[in-house]
Design a protein around this nucleic acid. Structure first.
Lengths: 197, 197, 197, 197
DNA sequence: GGATAAGCGAGACGGTACGTCTTGTCTTCTC
DNA sequence: GAGAAGACAAGACGTACCGTCTCGCTTATCC
């Protein structure tokens, strides 16, 4: 979010304002979805001035991104059960479960913003997407060292893990059930272990 | 788009207006992306009144959808080479190639609209997504009858074909290269042929 | 209203349409005042096409004028009691009473239109205002021949009769009571009989 | 116009904006009459955003009223020559002269708005009309104390002063000449001095 | 402790787009 | 031709956000 590297003179930013903005964003997106989220609305809802929001964030996307990151910070130890299928299933079930709640709405908002601004899309990729991909990459690497993965390229496998999720977030979020997590993780596991040509 | 099924009384809609709206939408999205597309802008660019646009389309999403459908109508014979990998590769190469051009921008615009309105998302699914999925379903069915597909469920395979594309459209459209088409089609082909558990 | 002097070929105008337009205008102005009167609304309310209205009338003002003239056609024998005060009182009481009803709203609408279009203002003057003034002129002339009027100029007296009415129609129509009619007619009668300087 | 009595927090309104709006309104009404005055046009002409206009004024009427009040603020010491006829003549000549210029067009616009909205009509009465009437009331009171006025009721006399003016503004503003001012003031003076019945 | 610097709530500002409403004209088919 | 139906260009309506700005006031650190 903010930075303010150098001089530490002047009144310091009020952390309560940061928190109020985050909370208002979560509330709004939970209640009305992305349509109901506006900079103006966030400021009003959080009882904070617009300037206070713009001082911290360059735009709506950044606010959403910050809320999502703060929201997700509490979780995510990458599963490590000793079995690729098990690991993927756990991760996808947890991830999909989240998409059915507030984080799902935030991810949709994020996608909408990313679609309107390639620069922001890159920001999201660097901040959020990469770390999620890295988690799956870790799982695959561990499985690979166990001999469970013969597929040469992690990247494609990771795309197959996350691609369908975003596809669903865009067009039909209700698709992201536990059953779908099972099907997908099984498919990727099978492909990962398929003998190379 | 318009419908107007029953009553054929009154002055008929001017097809030139339809065309002008479509063309203006294509021009705008090509020049400035989704951000540059507004109902007002479309009307101005096409030299048509706003009413004329709103008479035909309920919102920006519908205009974009119509333009995309009209644009795509000229193509798409589902490939049928007798080989699953070949068919998928051809389809993905063509599809990805399109995403690098105007249809890609239109698809992004469509996604952005869908994310803001679940009802519209369903409209898109019914109008566009389903038929694209059906094309891949056909390819898979033919291959299945040849014994090239053992994977029990078409749906997941289709998700694996299109999921990564939308994922890329949201966050990094430059990913949609021929090389990526090759990788993806190979992956899906392999999975489709993988021995059942 | 219309004229259509020359060629009498083709389908003749439907008098029912004329009547429907008039009635719809009266209904609308009675229910919602001038704000509620639009060419579109009149056509819709009367079940007539807009074209049918425009074929007859050049604009909203003409429609209102026509309705008012048709409405008023049923009345107005100029009072002739043999006494100026009595004549004026009768005329003003009747006129003011009308202003408290539908004709009042029509007159307001007429004024609003006249204020927006000087040409139409002249039309109204020629069509309506002059005849009303002539009625008072007649009363004055008769009284003058009886010696009840010494004031040299009819015109100013007539202005003093009608001016306050329009003043009230613009800013506060509720002022047009019987009491006010009494006061006004008395004032004008007094002035008319006042000895010349 | 604006009010905003209490809270003096936040950025203060820019007086230059107020002035620009007034000037644009005057310009537009002078150039094109009431027809040429629109909220959109005022904003455009004054180089001000529509919001800035709507923040200050509830509608077109209020803008016009404000412009008129500001315009008229520079004048109007009630004449006091010691003679009723003289006072009325002076006042009417000046008033009529104004009606031949921009204030006349503004008054016409005001009337048009008042005719479309009774609430606004009351606003105008309270803001503008009353004070004009009070000026004439003063003249009459002074003359009455001199014995020049025997007519019992100021109100009717004032109606006879202003009624014909509005009558003319609605239907034929060219009538408001110096000669007409002379005739009218003479008539009212005569009536005011007429012996009670 | 007084100066300096930044944060803060409030709200105005120029812009842009929204979706609706009217006006007056035009175009089709039916009577 | 008239008539119903309804499309059309033009343009105003009033509202909602965007991102920036300008006030008066409140904290902080630095000299």
């Amino acid at each position: 979010m903010s930075s303010r590297v150098g001089s530490m003179t002047g009144r310091p930013r009020d952390p309560a304002v940061d928190e109020a903005i985050r909370q208002a964003t979560l509330d709004l997106v939970a209640e009305q979805g992305y349509r109901g989220v506006s900079m103006e609305g966030i400021a009003a809802r959080s009882g904070v001035s617009k300037q206070a929001v713009y001082r911290r964030f360059a735009g709506k996307g950044e606010v959403i991104l910050d809320s999502l990151v703060a929201y997700a910070r509490t979780r995510l130890p990458t599963p490590d059960t000793g079995d690729l299928g098990e690991d993927l299933l756990t991760l996808l079930e947890e991830t999909f479960a989240a998409q059915r709640g507030v984080p799902g709405a935030l991810n949709q908002a994020l996608a909408a913003e990313a679609l309107q601004d390639p620069d922001f899309a890159r920001r999201v990729t660097d901040t959020l997407i990469q770390s999620r991909r890295a988690a799956v990459g870790e799982i695959l690497d561990r499985a690979r060292s166990r001999g469970q993965v013969t597929y040469p390229d992690n990247d494609v496998l990771i795309d197959l893990v996350f691609g369908p999720m975003w596809y669903a977030l865009v067009f039909d979020a209700t698709k992201l059930t536990d059953a779908y997590a099972t099907e997908l993780s099984a498919a990727v596991t099978t492909l990962a272990a398929s003998p190379p040509d």
